[in-house]
Write a protein that binds this DNA or RNA. Structure first.
Length: 597
RNA sequence: GGUUCCGUAGCUCAACUGGAUAGAGCAACUGCCUUCUAAGCAGUAGGUUGAAGGUUCGAGUCCUUCCGGAAUCACCA
């Protein structure tokens, strides 16, 4: 990246000399040279033709000439149409390598001095986590790491929707059908147990509705009259009144869920710095809505419900408080946002990692916060990601097509084990090391699969076709790292792992080596790009490119059979730098890279 | 119906934000293990970028109109 700055600087100078005109830096579009042409960097000269007052091709030609004459690191050039392809001297590449190798903060951009909050996960406490949550968590966690690497201080948080009618449904079902079942007594994960009662509530509810309908009630009437639903609503009221018995049950069932979630989070390898609970923020949201009402930002309808009118923004009217004074989803989110900026007054940006089905909700939320007079409202950002679809379409719990997070992760571990054993690669592994490897490979494959895709886009997951371990996958990249590790172990044994003054004595580089170096030099740029666009897929693609290019080198060039000792030492140091870069890039995705596999 | 997003090889995804002959992986086919790990490497084949217009040196990318799909528009969360 420093390389590109230097090239850009040289171009500016050369342009002025050649055409006697200033070339504004933003006009310089430097891009990687396509592999069918000679060179590594390409300057697009079409836009420059206007300034140079000659054709694009001539511009490129003259500019190339000047660069070659004046620059001590541009060795050659060629022009194809308006494209100026530049080749750099091997010395330029060696000094690039040197810079990277002795970089005291590899993979870490200098501090921006900014604090960022990233919210992700935020599940309901009535259903176990599923495939969609996996994408959400991996994304949010990875974006957090990328933002850190880009020089920000990051707070990872989530809001837990622990309050509301949904949890009351599980409570009612448990009271009616549970016979005092606990996670311990049934040996079930707490979130699964509570989830089962939620399903049971739904079944019972439907049964009661059809019974009532059979008795001649209308559908709407049956839905409100069903005894089990009445009971759930009653429970919610009691909860709001802090009825001790109800509150106790609520707490107990939520705790079951939390311990179940914790186990899942641990397997996923994600964590949080702070948790927010809806039960602790919704009252603040209510206050804010009432304050807004006083200030005339909102208005009240005859039935007592409170609304905001966003028709001047091209949106509709939106309910903020029900006629009975209870809060809705939006109310809680208003409270949460405000509380967060109170807790962390310095945060410059708040990122909400939430599915794209809620785009409208967040648009409205941010507008409301602005109307309430919060200046930071424009710093709120909805990191909207696409759903994970199954071949049959959307996941539907009613149709039993939900892919459970725990099950899927376990399946990945099993597949990893199967593959590894098939390949006969666990010689000399202890039981524990083998298990660790299966975990790293299984989760690596899963995380890579979910993160390599542009977050904004919906993606497809076919449960019948297991996630690949070959090709453009996590294990491919992990494998490259393991191979390099083997080389480094050997180098350490044979004693060639010190670079010494070998770099000074090198007289050439292989094209593949330059290919890898060019990629390695891009790492920080990629981090910046990924941070700017909240896109772990940029890093995923990058790690793949590095691994792919290194494998080419590995195949073409021998390390330990190299007779020239300086070359040999360089290749080892070069391999080490590659491994380090792969490790860091994969680390940003939450993927561990093994030393052996 | 209004709004927003999407449509690229048989399948899953890219394309440096308007740049060269649209690239990878999987699946298919052909080579490469007595040499640092073949979860690898090299190659063949596969495309009218949903369609038609337009903008310009240049369009998968921007504009218009169609076609097809998704999300959203609740006193649900």
């Amino acid at each position: 990246m420093i390389l590109e700055q230097e090239i850009t600087a040289e171009i500016t100078v050369a342009f002025k000399e050649a055409f006697n005109t200033e070339l504004p830096i933003e006009q310089i579009s430097l891009q990687p040279t396509r592999k069918e042409f000679e060179g590594t960097h390409t300057l697009v000269c079409f836009p420059l033709a206007r300034l140079s007052k000659t054709g694009p091709e001539q511009t490129a030609q003259q500019l190339g000439q000047k660069l070659q004459e004046n620059s001590d690191f541009i060795s050659d050039f060629n022009v194809v149409k308006g494209f100026l392809n530049l080749s750099l001297t091997y010395k330029a590449w060696i000094s690039t390598f040197e810079e990277l190798t002795y970089d005291p903060n590899p993979g870490q951009l200098s501090s921006t001095g900014k604090e960022v909050m990233v919210e992700y996960s935020s599940p309901n406490t009535n259903k176990p986590l599923h495939l969609g949550h996996l994408r959400n968590n991996f994304l949010g966690w990875s974006v957090s790491e990328i933002l850190k690497a880009a020089g920000n201080k990051v707070h990872k948080v989530q809001i837990i929707n622990d309050r509301g009618i949904h949890i009351c449904k599980s409570m009612v079902a448990w009271q009616q059908f549970g016979n005092g079942e606990t996670p311990k007594s049934s040996d079930k994960k707490g979130d699964k147990l509570v989830g089962d009662y939620y399903v049971q509530f739904d079944q019972e509810y439907k049964k009661q509705i059809s019974e009532l309908e059979a008795q001649g009630l209308s559908k709407e009437q049956a839905e409100t009259d069903a005894p089990i639903m009445k009971e759930a609503k009653e429970l919610l009221l009691k909860w709001e009144d802090k009825d001790p018995e109800v509150y106790e049950l609520w707490k107990q069932m939520n705790n079951w869920v939390y311990s179940g979630f914790d186990a899942t989070y641990q397997t996923m390898g994600v964590d949080f710095d702070k948790l927010y609970y809806e039960s602790e923020t919704y009252l603040l949201g209510k206050e804010e809505v009432l304050r807004g009402l006083d200030q005339g930002v909102f208005y009240k309808k005859e039935d007592g419900s409170v609304w905001v009118d966003l028709s001047d923004q091209g949106l509709d009217q939106k309910l903020l408080l029900r006629s009975d004074g209870t809060s809705v989803y939006m109310t809680q989110d208003i409270g949460t946002a405000i509380l967060r900026f109170r807790d962390f007054p310095k945060i410059a940006r708040q990122v909400y990692t939430v599915g794209n089905e809620q785009e409208y909700h967040f648009k409205v939320l941010f507008l409301i916060l602005e109307k309430l007079g919060y200046k930071w409202a424009k710093e709120c950002y909805h990191l909207s990601y696409g759903m994970v679809d199954l071949p049959s379409g959307k996941m539907k719990s009613r149709e039993g097509t939900v892919v459970d997070a725990d099950d899927l992760m376990q399946e990945m571990l099993d597949t990893a084990e199967e593959h590894t054993k098939e390949l006969g690669k666990i010689e000399g592994f202890t039981e524990e090391q083998a298990r660790e490897l299966y975990y790293n490979l299984g989760l690596g494959a899963l995380k890579y699969f979910l993160l390599k895709v542009d977050p904004k886009k919906r993606m497809l997951f076919d449960p019948n076709e297991s996630i690949q371990f070959q090709g453009h996958t996590g294990p491919f990249i992990q494998y490259t790292h393991a191979r390099i590790s083997a080389i480094l172990r050997k180098a350490n044994q044979v004693g060639y792992d010190e670079l010494g003054d070998s770099l000074l004595k090198l007289e050439s580089l292989e094209p593949v080596e330059i290919g890898v170096l060019k990629l390695l030099a891009n790492f920080k740029d990629k981090i910046a790009e990924a941070a700017d666009t909240y896109s772990p897929d940029v890093i995923a693609q990058y790690a793949y490119d590095v691994a792919k290019e290194y494998n080419r080198f590995y195949q073409e060039v021998s390390i330990f059979n190299e007779e020239n000792r300086d070359k040999l030492k360089f290749r080892i140091a070069f391999s080490r730098l590659t491994a380090q870069t792969i490790k860091q890039a994969m680390g940003l995705l939450g993927i561990n890279v093994p030393e052996r596999m």
